[in-house]
Design a protein around this nucleic acid. Structure first.
Lengths: 194, 194
DNA sequence: TAATGTGAAAACCTTCACAGCT
DNA sequence: AGCTGTGAAGGTTTTCACATTA
């Protein structure tokens, strides 16, 4: 979120920002901003604030955003195709290197310039292409099994689009994209506004 | 997440669950489960656990998931069309009642059975169709303005797909769907595994 | 003057541990 | 015997407030 906000500030031509201003953008208190940043270093100048360009580069370095990350996708149904064709990943350094599907009718087809491979080719591809991130776009019923296969193949991070609560061991990093859950976690508060 | 897990348990024919078992599914401690649930009531039976069907219905009631929620969508580009055609919302009680676009070339077209309306029709439609939730699928540059218009029109919740850090007043509930942010919040931990 | 960085305080959240119920 | 519900303890996060520096 900091990287987002700082990138936007830079594009607006703002070169110095205080914790107060940055907090306003991110809906956070100035104290929270300063504590967060102080955990990683002393990036600010007293009386002045933070140099936007400098802080942005520091954070990008800390987060590992200055390198390329190789990902693969499992599931080339409607959702999977939308993800493959989404133009937002590449500019941020996330490259789709391979796509897989357990449906043999999909295997061999071409989606977004990549040939769809069978699940049996997963392990080899992960190793060969240095793939660290697996993206899951299969139906809920298959998702846990696919996640297990990805992890067995050596993937270290999972971006899961299936509407389930996946179980993964602690050393695997997982993030869920779940619009229905987002809506369901919202209605409680809407209800109370009646 | 509880609703998800309980629904799955029910479909597996499991009718009673302990905090230990539920915790295992959700990767949480038994104590956490019990504390969470105790905040809303006393749903369990000592020595036995929780009746899955009963607890599920109670939670659905508390969260407001036993009613229909009316939503509208702004932005019928590639992403917007994918959202409209996503079959996961309706079964959970979220109905897409109207769609809008600021591009006059899109207005009048039909997407997913709904006629695309101009932004000028937003306020009236929100009121007429009782729309409480606005879904934002426009480019980043337009997103904050669209969010503001939705809120001005009386929408109480926002599901935002644009890759920005939106600013909304406290009484509006907002959830962001942001796969790039999810990946960027993951790389820090992958980096450390080297 | 204006803002950071940071110990200390306050607030919040999670876990423990056990009385009490089935 | 088995498990809940819950005060109390323990731990973590956020906020305060101020010495310090540009």
């Amino acid at each position: 979120m900091y990287v987002r906000a700082l990138t936007q500030l830079l594009s607006e031509g703002i070169s110095v920002v205080s914790s107060r201003q940055l907090g306003h953008r991110l809906q956070m208190t100035p104290a929270q901003i300063r504590k967060d940043l102080s955990y990683f270093g002393r990036f600010g100048k007293q009386g002045r604030g933070y140099d936007v360009h400098f802080l942005l580069e520091e954070l990008r370095q800390i987060l590992g955003l200055n390198q390329e990350w190789d990902a693969c996708l499992v599931g080339v149904g409607r959702l999977g195709r939308a993800i493959i064709n989404y133009p937002g990943f590449a500019p941020e350094g996330f490259r789709m290197r391979a796509v897989f599907d357990s449906d043999s009718r999909q295997v061999g087809g071409v989606v977004g310039g990549l040939r769809v491979q069978p699940m049996s080719a997963l392990s080899e591809a992960v190793e060969r292409d240095n793939i660290t991130i697996g993206i899951v776009a299969v139906p809920a019923a298959e998702a846990q099994s696919v996640i297990d296969q990805l992890i067995d193949s050596g993937v270290q991070g999972i971006l899961n689009y299936a509407p389930i609560a996946p179980q993964v061991s602690m050393h695997v990093v997982i993030r869920n994209i779940d619009p229905v859950l987002a809506l369901q976690s919202m209605t409680f508060y809407l209800r109370e506004l009646d």
